[in-house]
Every structure is written in C-alpha cells, then in structure tokens.
Design a protein around this nucleic acid. Structure first.
Lengths: 216, 216
DNA sequence: ACTTGTGAATTGCTTCACAGCG
DNA sequence: CGCTGTGAAGCAATTCACAAGT
C-alpha cells in the first residue's frame, strides 16, 4: 500500500546546496565524505545533514561516511535531476538575455527551449540558442511540448499578466525576476529571484547587526 | 540602559516583500491597508504580518489598519533604506553587465560605484554607468570609500578567492551569483543568487508533488 | 575508534483566539 | 464594530546524545 511522507521544506531547500557541493568534491576525486566535513563545506550543521538525508533512507555507512558519487546521484534523483527539464524564458530584455546565455554555458538539467517577448523588434533575435518568438505563440508551444517551468524577466507592470497566461497554459513553476509578488493558484510554485529582496535583507543586517536596540 | 532584541530571521526575510508591495499600493493612491488585505497581496497570513510588525512597535491603528506611507517608511528605516548603499560589482561578464544595467534602471537605495574584473580586455568598458577597473584596484577603492556590499558574478573557480579578497578589505555582505558555497568569516553575510538552486527546488516539487512515496 | 541514524529535548516560528483601542 | 497587538497553544525544525553498525 503506497503511502506518502511530507519532507520539511527546509530540507528540500538545502538539498541543492549539498548537490552543488558534492559535484565539486567528486571532481576533486574524493570518494568518501562525512557529514562533519560536508557540513563545513556547505556551512550546515552535520546533524542537520544527517537528518535531511535520513528522510530518504540509509544513504551512508556507519563508521565510514557517505560515498560521494552515490550520494550525489541519490540527491539528484530525489530532486528530479535524472531527467532534463525543458523551460521557457519570457522577456528578452538585457537581463533575460544574459540569463539565457548563462544557462547555455552552465546549465545542467535545465535547458531553454523557447524565448518569448511582446516587442516585435526582438522577434528573430537569437537568445540562449533560441530565436525570440512573439508572445502569442507561447500558449501553443507550452501546451504542445508540455513545459512545466518558466523564467519570467519582464517589467513589473507586465509580470502579473504574463504569470496568468503562463498558468493558463500549464506552467507549474515560475522563477520570477520581476519586482512584485505574483498571485497564482496554489498548485503553482513561484520563486522570487528579484535581487533587491536580498540586497534589502543584507542592508538590514548591516544596519542593525541582527538586532534592534531600544532605550538609552 | 540599552538592550537588544533578536528579530526572527523569517521576519526579516518578509520585510522586503511588504516593502515592495507597499510601494505599489502607495502608487495606487491607497492610504490605509489592513493586515488582511496586505496579506492577500503578499501571500502571507495576516497574523504573521501583525506579529512581524509588532517587533518594531505599534505601527498600526486598532480598528483601522496601517497607514500605507507611514508603514512603508517605517519598514524602510528598519531595513536601513533611509540611506543609500554604495556597492561594487566584481565580474563584468554577461551576467554581471546585465545586473549592473538593470540596477541602474531599477535600483533604489543601492547604487553601483565600481566594477572590477581580472580580464584586461574588459578594462575601460562602461558597465552600469561605471568604467571596469582592474581587480588590483579593488582593495584601495573599497577601503577608501568604506563600501560594505559586493555583488559577485565571477566563474566558480575564482569565486572563493575573490570572496576572500573582498572580506579582507572590509566587505560585510556579498550577493553571490557563483555556483558554490562561499566560506567566509561569520560576521560576513552571503546571499546565494545562483538561480540553479531555485530551479532544482522547483524540480523537486514538480517531480514529487511535495512528498515522496514508498511501498507498493 | 569512528560516523551514521534516530528518538528525545529544545528552540523557534506560526496559528489561534481574544483583549484592547480606535 | 473592526482591526491591531499579544499571550498561549500548537507545530516544525534544530540540537543533543547515544545506540547501532562497520
């Protein structure tokens, strides 16, 4: 009888950190690693790493540690990186173009299959190995190829409208660079990549040293 | 007698969301807002908003709600956005350049004052309103202008080395686009802007629908 | 001897429910 | 009456400490 367990969000948030680090460690030719050492490399407490991994079975060997390649591949499978994820980019401005080019060079597991924009001047331009197509062609394209992920790099004013369209044709995950909170149905996931959010968080800690003070 | 209270990290993480949204609401000419309505706009439970804001005093009026402009400015002060933050960019590749241009157009509260790269071919290029300077000039520049924030957009191989240099000349906050976990002293803050992390988290939820299944 | 996997204790955050005020 | 501010309850995540395994 199949049953399902909910994995803590914080665990999922850390898995890509482990994965990224294990890739590097593997390249260095290291075969075994302890939660201790991995912890230092990813900046996470070893017991957190062990708890995180334990959700998915017994991935390590007691007294020894974790096999780097095996663990890397296990985490890859957990994250769904054993398949290639096609995604589209909406918005071929400077930022969108740079992201697309960057992905072409460094992207693993995710490949750009379409770029869309409203501006006719952009049509036909090559961006990240794809020709920019008019926004009107997006719905058919996404439905036909059954694409689930979109990167959104359009101006704030357009972002909500575009998000709506994306959802309507079946997109389930959006990585948004737009500086607004998108409203989407709850079965659609949005990650905010607007770097101003992070800059502002930085500013808080730099201003307040993590606290606020009162009194005299 | 001065005393200090620790604000939850999750509260700080949400403040920029509120701030971003309040700016928009203010532009629409709305003067008062309840935690209820704001909650819908930012996708956060109203009681979370009230608890978050309560850390900083009584910012609202019972029976009425929050004054939009007043609240926006209060949050701005809390985050340290009442001052302008100068920052530098290290790495004038495609991504760095796009980020710099983007910041010039849309950046509030943070302004780019220097761009550095190791590649002599880049020297002198205009990026985000600044001329690209050789990496060697960075330490003197940062120290002299007392800059605290850096954006890091260099290849993985260089990133750790550069992070070290940044820390050595007084940088306290790094927004890193490099696909590695940087190791820095604990009084230095690093935010990871590597979008592959978010794509991988998306992939997990799209693959597993938030769960994993066992058994038969 | 060393390191994982894991229940138990602890800490921190969110949700609830309502008193306090406009 | 409506909405904030807040103690208390409930839930989730981290930390601890050690048994289990190599």
């Amino acid at each position: 009888m199949p049953f399902r367990i909910k994995i803590p969000r914080s665990t999922i948030d850390r898995l890509p950190l482990y994965y990224r680090c294990l890739n590097l460690i593997e390249e260095h030719g290291i075969e075994e690693i302890s939660s201790q050492v991995l912890g230092v490399r990813v900046g996470v407490d070893p017991s957190v790493i062990r708890k995180d991994l334990a959700w998915f079975g017994e991935l390590g060997k007691r007294g020894v540690g974790y096999n780097v390649t095996y663990l890397k591949e296990a985490i890859g499978r957990i994250l769904g990186l054993d398949k290639e994820w096609p995604f589209i980019l909406v918005g071929a401005g400077k930022l969108g173009m740079a992201l697309a080019e960057h992905n072409r060079k460094y992207g693993r597991h995710f490949h750009l299959v379409g770029v869309f924009d409203r501006d006719p001047e952009k049509f036909g331009l090559m961006v990240g190995g794809q020709r920019v197509s008019p926004m009107e062609e997006m719905p058919a394209f996404v439905k036909e190829k059954d694409i689930k992920i979109a990167m959104l790099a359009v101006p704030a004013e357009e972002a909500q409208k575009v998000a709506h369209e994306l959802v309507k044709c079946g997109i389930k995950g959006i990585l948004s660079y737009a500086p607004i909170t998108l409203s989407v149905p709850e079965d659609v996931l949005v990650y905010n990549a607007d770097y101003n959010l992070d800059l502002q968080r930085l500013a808080y800690y730099l201003s307040n040293d993590g606290n606020i003070s009162w009194g005299e």
